[in-house]
Structure formats: C-alpha cells, structure tokens
Design a protein around this nucleic acid. Structure first.
Length: 324
DNA sequence: GAGCAGGATCCTT
DNA sequence: AAGGATCCTGCTC
C-alpha cells in the first residue's frame, strides 16, 4: 500500500530514462543535437496509468528551431501536458516581452511551440519541486551535502529503476557531483551513468534557469521553491543579465542573435549585437538603446562578478561567472 | 568602423 | 541606494 507521499510522487510527471540515455552527452551544443532525432517527446500512460513525459533533458528545448518545428508537427497533447495553474506565469500571452518581437512574421507555429515548451518546462519544474519537498533537499544540486546526494540517487534509482549506485557516490557532495563529467559518471557506475548524468543535467538546468539567488532556503516550508519561472513575468524589473539568460534559454527563437559557445562554462556569444540591443530596448521601453549602451551595462557586471570576459577574450563573447 | 574598457552623470524605481 | 541609461574619451582589432 502506497503512502500519500508515494502517491504524490507517482502522480507527478516523470522523466524516463529511454531517451535520456540516448541523448546524454550529445546535448551540449544546442544546434547540433537535433539532426537525428528519432526521439520525440510525448505524453502517454504507462502500465500503471501514470503520466510519463518523455523529455530527454532541458536541452531538447534548446534545439535548432527548424528541427524543432519538424518534430512537433505531430498532434500535440498540450492540454494534458499542462493542466496547470491558472496563475501560470509562463503563458507567452501574459508576458510577451521576450519572444514576440523576435519572431518572423507569421511564425504562429513557433509561438505555439514556445507555449508548449513553457508548459513542459513548468511540468518538469513541478516534478523537481515535488522531489525537493519529498526528499527535503535544496533544488540546486550545487547546494547538496553528501546526504542530499544519496537521497537524490535513491530517488533517481527508484524513478528509473536503476541498480543501486549510492555506494560509489558516498563521499561526494553536490559540488563534487556537479563538477563530474559524463566520463566520471561512467567510471563510477558504468551501467547507468548516462541516465544519472542526464537527470542531473536537468536539475542543474532548472537551477540555472531560476538563478540560485532566487531559490528559497527551505524546501520544506510548503512554499514554492521556484518563486518565478521567468523573470519576464515576475512583475519585477528584469536585470540585463537575466534578460540575456532568457534569450539564451530560448535558442529556437534567439540563437540568431545570441547563443551559447560553451554552456557549461557559461560562455555565450552575441551574434547580432544590434538585434540584442533592440530586444533589450523593447523590454526596457528604451527605443534609443544600442549595443554601445548595452555593452556598457554588461561591463558594469564585471565588478559585481556576474559576467566577465572569457579567458580567451573575443569580440562579442562574454561569460557568466557562475554557470551551472 | 566596430567593439571594448571604464569614468562620469543622470534618471527611475 | 541600486540598477540602468546615456555620454564620453581613449584604446584595440
């Protein structure tokens, strides 16, 4: 007989290991991951009647827009995917700041895809939030102590029916875990490294999306551990670094203007400085914004330790100081 | 010419 | 006060 907690766990959206394993390690470069793509993400019921969302990792949301469009021409399960909250802040209609101006005319598909993407992300975040509450661990893997790591491992083993690997990770805390490469994972648990690595990547991505500073301290309070899913919808004045991050997290819309050069290191390149400045000006209602002013604002982040120039300084290339 | 670095000042919240 | 916009000079590529 399952406990109420277990029921709650099972009722949440689960991430399966099938495509996670296939895709792990190939997800770094957003534009490069999409070409093969036998994988799809879909909603279906497994034998236990549970909702299962096939989502390789957050990076599936970072694929090249062309492939993405091709992939989801199939009928979409939108309503079931996100029965979701009436207070949802992810609805593009409610927060059009980021996407609308950059879309090509008549790109309704892109718009609806972004809506769906937002809903999928929300579901994944809910899943993580639920896990945090049940396990009593911080949402950001970097903040985990060794006990938290073991809890997460147990949870992941249960979720994906993996063999027990806790022993191999016994001396590791969250920082150690996050610093591990996929190869490191493979050395510790050859049989399930891909799944673990990809699952951790999702947690890291989620933490990155929300910014570590915005995450509440206690996951046990019943409060939302993710106060805002998107700064564009928070009602708070958005900071430039948040805005840039939002663009980077929506590469299917904005990779023409700004894209990751090395996501792990937080290095990104502004491909079209004029367009990025224009978008920033629109967001801030500053029609006179240009790249000169925007870059001056970016340089203000140097002192604050938010953004810096990479070691190998290149034009239009910057680096977030604290990447996930 | 475009981008970068940083000082100074002003405005908005 | 903080964050950002604006203007500026000087420099590098």
């Amino acid at each position: 007989m399952s406990s109420p907690k277990e029921s709650q766990v099972e009722s949440t959206v689960c991430l399966t290991d099938v495509t996670l394993s296939e895709r792990a390690g190939t997800t770094e470069k957003g534009a490069s991951v999409a070409s093969d793509s036998t994988e799809t993400w879909s909603l279906e019921l497994n034998e236990r009647g549970l909702q299962v969302l096939y989502l390789p990792s957050f990076d599936i949301l970072s694929i090249d827009e062309t492939t993405w469009l091709g992939k989801v021409r199939e009928p979409t399960p939108t309503p079931e995917v996100a029965p979701a909250s009436p207070t949802s802040h992810g609805e593009p209609e409610q927060c059009p700041q980021v996407h609308s101006s950059a879309l090509q005319p008549g790109q309704d598909d892109e718009r609806s895809l972004e809506q769906m993407q937002t809903m999928v992300v929300e579901e994944v975040l809910k899943d993580i939030e639920t896990a945090c509450k049940l396990l009593n661990i911080p949402p950001d893997p970097v903040d985990w102590n060794m006990g938290n790591v073991q809890k997460w491992l147990l949870w992941t083993e249960h979720l994906y029916k993996l063999p027990s690997v806790g022993q191999a990770f016994q001396q590791l805390d969250g920082k150690d875990l996050c610093a591990m490469s996929q190869e490191d994972f493979h050395k510790l648990c050859p049989g399930c490294s891909d799944t673990l690595y990809a699952h951790l990547d999702i947690w890291k991505s989620a933490a990155w999306m929300h910014g570590r500073s915005s995450v509440t301290e206690s996951p046990t309070t019943g409060q939302n551990v993710w106060p805002e899913a998107d700064s564009s919808c928070s009602g708070q004045p958005v900071h430039l670094w948040q805005f840039l991050r939002e663009l980077l997290l929506k590469p299917h819309n904005y990779s023409r203007y700004i894209r990751w050069q090395n996501k792990d290191k937080g290095i990104f390149k502004i491909e079209d400085s004029a367009q990025v400045a224009r978008l920033w000006g629109q967001r801030k209602n500053r029609p006179a914004m240009n790249y000169d002013k925007l870059s001056r604002s970016i340089r203000q982040y140097y002192k604050k330790g938010i953004i810096r120039k990479p070691d190998m300084s290149q034009r239009l290339v910057y680096q977030f100081v604290h990447p996930v």
